[in-house]
Design a protein around this nucleic acid. Sequence first.
DNA 1: GCCAACGTTGGC
DNA 2: GCCAACGTTGGC
Length: 155
Amino acid sequence: MKSEPGAYSIDNLHRAPRRTDCWDGVRNYQARNFMRDDMRKGDLAFFYHSSCPRPGIVGIMEIARAGYPDHTAWDPREPHYDAQSDPARPRWYMVDVRYRRKAKRLLGLPELRTHPGLVGLQLLRRGNRLSVMPVSREHWELILELEAKPPPGKN
DNA sequence: GCCAACGTTGGC
DNA sequence: GCCAACGTTGGC
């Protein structure tokens, strides 16, 4: 799950009450479907910082509540207000996430890209712009193994 | 249903 | 700031 740290970082989540917050504001149908249909309470997710000097995976969180309507879509004062979303038929969904831990080190996008085992990871797909996307069990475990290794040196 | 125009995302 | 790659919109 991606977020721009300038808007909402893993530190924000760490400081939130009960280290839990709602993942609101997603306004993309594919990303919405992942949250609404595929995420279950107790699932784990990587927290990814995007649009920043060093984009990459910065930590792990847990889905604390499965998909439910994103009420910020109905509030005109909200930045992601959507006048077309009817409370009777919610268009946008969110989940609640709980902070688990920070990554031992940043798993930067360039490093992830160089790893042959991560070919096919949706995050690395060309032109990918989804802010929420699935990670296979195999890729998940590979990334955790990568985390345990020393960071790549500068060549 | 096609597709051009436009807006957004996000790496660089 | 640039721009590639998408998604959305709306005229036809």
